[in-house]
Structure formats: structure tokens, C-alpha cells
Design a protein around this nucleic acid. Sequence first.
RNA 1: GGUCCGUUCGUCUAGGGGUUAGGACACGUCCCUUUCACGGAUGAAACACGGGUUCGAUUCCCGUACGGACUACCA
Length: 503
Amino acid sequence: MTKPRVRFAPSPTGALHIGGVRTALYNYLFARQKGGTFILRIEDTDQGRYVPGAEDYIIESLRWVGLLPDEGVGFGGSDGPYRQSDRKEIYKKYAHELVQRGHAYYAFDTPVELEALRQATENFTYNHLTRNDLANSLMLGDAESQRRVAAGDPFVIRLKVEPGQSIHIQDLIRGDVVFESSELDDKVLLKTDGMPTYHLANIVDDHLMRITHVIRGEEWLPSTAHHVLLYRGFGWEATMPKFSHLPLIMKPVGNGKLSKRDGAKFGIPVFPLGWKGETEEESFGGFREAGFLPEAVVNFLALLGWHPGGDQDVFSMEELIQLFSIEHIGKSGARFDYEKAKSFNQKYIHAKDDAALATLVRPLAEAKGYQVSDEFLSKAISLMKERVTFLTDFVEMGYYLFEPVRNYDEETLQKRWNSDVAAVFAELTEKVATFDLFKAAELEDAVKTFIQEKGIKPGDILPLLRIALVGTMKGPAVFETAEVLGKAETLARLKAMIDHKKE
RNA sequence: GGUCCGUUCGUCUAGGGGUUAGGACACGUCCCUUUCACGGAUGAAACACGGGUUCGAUUCCCGUACGGACUACCA
């Protein structure tokens, strides 16, 4: 078997949906495993929906999750251009060629006329039943059609679907899928503006770029019959790619597939990266901004609709490449489970070493104005690591490692603080001031000895120590926190606590 | 409405003609810890339904129900 060539072909109509990232991932895994080629093609044939910046967004997203194309927009390659708007003339040529071959025709019906027909006729379809009554070259004849085309009349080119044939698609995921050509409409291939529709551009490009496998979302399954007809019409059936239609990613709750709006609706990221729209409403954060590690996102996405079998569920990119197989892709829609995504993130953060995490957390800390040494950051990370879910938690949940306690857990204070305790606390603070070796273990020994000498229970004083240091009853071990904070800061916080209670 | 696709714990899924139907997330309980988490243990939790085929079906076939996608000069 020759090396496979696959493509990821998003449309730059805005931020790349997380489902798109999964499609890219599966294509990438397949290509990598087989030593094939992964191509990025930009399908920007709809001028009306083109969004500036979307293309860069797509590329940056792929970079972030580590799915670098071998060829494509921004990555070079010898089968370019890889942006469909730069290939307009190619499609035009092939569209006309298909007319010559008798598999397509000119149609002069205006969108307004067609809309009127749809209003007037229930389930109106432009097909073998209706095309003979409409303004196209099949009815008008070649001479008149040529005259109108030459005269500059607006026209589209439509696929001429011959009725009466069964079109079989051997989908690698779904098996044999059959469509009756009589049920198919005469799809527009070339629009009035001279741009191709998806159907034409896709087939022409996949053929010209020698694509061997088309791995795309299930929403394309219904139009695949048209695509097969196009391959046949052009005489390219022998090299037609194999199709695999992926199950869709569904909303976290409710019905239907995950949509861009669900992000705002459920307060969860549905895009890899943040997006700056024209307005606040059109702007949103992505998985990256939420504090996800790209490898966690990849792992989560890989398992949304695919599993190699067995009980393993944490996979590195290398393992995914090794284990991936189209046969193991599921057939039914996979619900987007954000809790699961979070749990993967947590696992990956735990598994990552402190130094690597520090590199990622440093920008977050600096954005908050925290100036810290590598050594300190590393210690802070090691302290917090096991209780964070997101990278951002290090500087948000664990803010107290970088700045003074903002507020105290007054409820607990109310219960535990009294004049007796206050005296002990003050004494303890003085004792702490005498420690030179500020290490967690020694500190703990000393404090516990002190507690014993005083004849009080650890529970009387430890919680207060904790609140003094971090403000809350949640968080890392007290003595380790003290060590990371250092002697000066620890003392300052103990005194601040005393001052706080004096008020 | 039409066409096509699908259906194993709440969710992601493993499995496959004879299994105590497995794992993960989430949830409950317990242990660890005088915090929170992590970790460990444990519990509850599924083969949509109805017919076939078969000695036997969750697994194969057919229907039904339900879900989904598509049905644009959008991709």
C-alpha cells in the first residue's frame, strides 16, 4: 500500500470548533501511524462567511495541540495552493469540463426564483424530476445557453444526477451505505460568483492532492453519494479516496450536536484557544485559557468516539499514534463530558514535572504581577500540584503563595479563637521567630512539642495556623506551606493574624 | 416530511452467541490526613423494546421506538 495522504480541511468561518480538532487529530494519528502525509487545506469558498483571523486561529490551534501538518497553508508542500480561494480557476476549469462530459449543466434560475418555488411547492428539489421545467441548459439547449453565458447572464453549474442507480459507499466505519440516485438533488457545483461549492472543490482538490483517505464528520455522509458521482463523472473513480465518517460530538446536556453557542450556554470551553470577536459577546476563552494542558485535551478528544480496546484510558500522543485504528472508531455520537476533560487535565498536571509546569505557570503568575524566582515557583507548584485541576489554579486557588492572605475564614475563626488561644498563638509566634532551620519536618516537630508542653490539642491551634498562612481551611499541608513561604513571610502572616484579631 | 446513520451503567467506553457484562469520569461509604486534595478500598449503576435464527442471544437478522445528521448558489 502506498503511503496514505489525508487532509484536514476546515472552513475559516470563525474559531475552530473542538470537534474540528478531533477530526484533525484522527487524520493526524492515521497519517503518522502509516508514515503518510497530513495536509491542511483551507476551504474558504464562501466569501460571505469568511472571517479574518480564522485561518491564523486554525493554524495556532493545531500548533497548540501538536498536530503539525506536513503540507498546507503555512506549511509548504508541492500540491498547493492549499487555500481554495487561490484555486478558483482550477475549479472553474473542471466544472466546465464536467459540463462537456455531460455530467453537469448550466442553470440560470435565480436564488429568488428558487426560493419562490420552495415556498410554492412542498419539498421542492432541483433534480431529474424538476430540472426539465427550469431555466437550465438541458431545457434551453446548448445554443441558447451559450448565448446567455456569453451575454454575461449569471449562472451556476449543477451536477446532473442520472436517476435509477444505486450508489454504494464502502465507509470504513459504517460499512456499506447505499443511496438511490433518484433521491439525490442536482447540487450546485459552481456558484454565480465563480466560486465552487464544497462538493466540487473537495473532489477536485482531494483528487489533485492525491488524497487516499477522507476522514471527516458524519454530517458529510449524506452528500458522499454526490461526491462519488463526481469522481465517476470526472473518470477518477479508480483513485477515489476511502471514506470514514466520524460520529458527531454532542451537547453536554440536552439534544443535538455540540455547537459554538454551547460554550457560553454551559460555561465551558468548546474551542481550543480563546477568540477575540468584535464584541464581548463574540469573544470567549478556549481550553488553553481555561488552564488545560494540550496533551490532556488530545487524550480527552481521542477517546471521544474512539478506543483501542482494553482498560487503558491515559495515552500519550506516541501511544495514540501507535494504537489508532479507524476500525475502532465508534458509530454513535459522543456526548461532550467536561468533567471527564477536567479529570484528564488533573491527571496530566500531576504527571508533569515541576520545572515543566513552572514554564507554563510563569506567564500566568507574571500576568498577575507576581515576580518570583524559578526556585520558589517550582516549590509552590510542587505544593499545589495535587490539588489543582487547571494550570490557572496555581495562581488563583493558590494566590496566597504569591501575595498576602486576602481574607480569613471567619466562621472557623469564630469557633476557635478565644483569649486563651490568642495567648498561645502569640507565644507560638515568638517561638517560631527563633527557628533558624525553616524546614517543614523540623517545624512540625517543634510546633508539636510546643503543643504538648502547653497541654493543648493540636486541633486547637493547627487550624488557626493554617488560616493565618492561607486564610482558609483548604489547601496544602501547613508546615510545608510555611517552609515554602519562608521564615519572614510566615512570621509576618502570624503577626497579621494577631493584628487582625485585635481589631 | 424525505434520505441516510446510530442505540452497552448518568457520561465516555471494553466486550462479544454460553461472562459474576470490564474500565474510566461523576456519585455514595470507608481508610489515609486534626484542612483540602491526592492515593487506597468499597458500593450503587447498563446490553432500548418486540419478533425471529439458535440448544442458547446483550452479541446475528428483521421490525418498532427513540436519538442524530443531512435536506442552501454554508461548509
